[in-house]
C-alpha cells in the first residue's frame, strides 16, 4: 500500500474527516466508473458512489489493511450497484435495434465514435439487460473495468471457475445479441 494512502487511512481510523475528504477526492472517479459501467446511468451511479462512501466511512473498522483498498471499495460499490440494478429492473431499456444504427452511422461516415455518458450508458444497459446478476457483475468488473482475474475474485467472492464460466456466458450472450441484430441490419440494406 502506498505510504500516503496508509497515512490517510490511519487518520480516518482515528475519525479524521479531512483525511476522509482526501480519500473521497482521490477515489470517487474510480468508484464512479465502476458504478456507471454496471448501471449505465450517470445519476444512479452518482447516488451509488455517495452511498458507498458513506458506508465506507461507517464501516472503516472492518477494513483490513492487508487487503488492497480499491478492492474493498469496489466490493462496496458493486454490492450497492447490484441493489440499485434490482430496484431499477422495471426501468425501460432502449432496444439495441434502435441504438446501434445511430451509433454505427457515425462510424460509417468516417467520424470516430466519441461516446458520451448518455449514449454509452444506453448501450451498456442494452447489451447487459437480461444478463443474470453474476454474469453482469463479472462482465462489468473484468471486461468493462479491466480488472485482473484475481481482483475480480477478491471483489465478487466467487471462485475462479465460476468467474470464467459467468464471463464466458455473458460474452456469448452479448456477442450473439449484437451479431444477430447487426446481421439483420445488413440484410435490410
Amino acid at each position: 500500500m502506498p505510504f500516503i494512502l496508509q497515512k490517510i487511512i490511519q487518520k480516518i481510523q482515528k475519525g479524521d474527516k479531512n483525511a476522509f475528504r482526501m480519500l473521497v477526492e482521490k477515489y470517487q472517479q474510480t468508484a464512479f466508473r465502476l458504478a456507471f459501467r454496471m448501471l449505465g446511468d450517470e445519476d444512479e451511479a452518482r447516488d451509488v458512489v455517495q452511498d458507498s462512501f458513506i458506508r465506507i466511512w461507517e464501516k472503516f473498522n472492518t477494513y483490513n489493511d492487508k487487503e488492497k483498498f480499491t478492492s474493498w471499495m469496489y466490493r462496496i460499490v458493486s454490492n450497492r450497484a447490484i441493489d440499485s440494478i434490482r430496484a431499477l429492473k422495471r426501468r425501460p431499456v432502449i432496444s439495441l435495434e434502435k441504438l446501434i444504427p445511430e451509433t454505427l452511422a457515425t462510424r460509417e461516415n468516417g467520424i470516430d465514435i466519441v461516446l458520451e455518458n448518455r449514449e454509452a450508458g444506453e448501450l451498456i444497459r442494452s447489451i447487459t439487460s437480461g444478463l443474470p446478476e453474476k454474469q453482469q457483475l463479472v462482465f462489468s468488473l473484468r471486461d468493462l473495468q479491466g480488472l485482473s482475474p484475481k481482483e475480480v475474485q477478491d471483489i465478487s467472492g466467487m471462485a475462479e471457475t465460476a468467474i470464467k464460466s459467468n464471463l464466458y456466458h455473458a460474452r456469448k450472450t452479448i456477442r450473439e445479441k449484437l451479431t444477430g441484430i447487426l446481421t439483420f441490419e445488413k440484410k435490410l440494406l
Binding site: 451511479a45 461516446l115 450508458g121 447489451i127 471486461d143 468493462l144 456477442r175 449484437l178
Partner: peptide, 10 residues
C-alpha cells in the same frame, strides 16, 4: 462496438 464500450471512460 464492444471495444468502443470497453474503451469508453465515463
Amino acid at each position: 462496438l464492444v471495444t468502443n464500450i470497453i474503451d469508453f471512460e465515463p
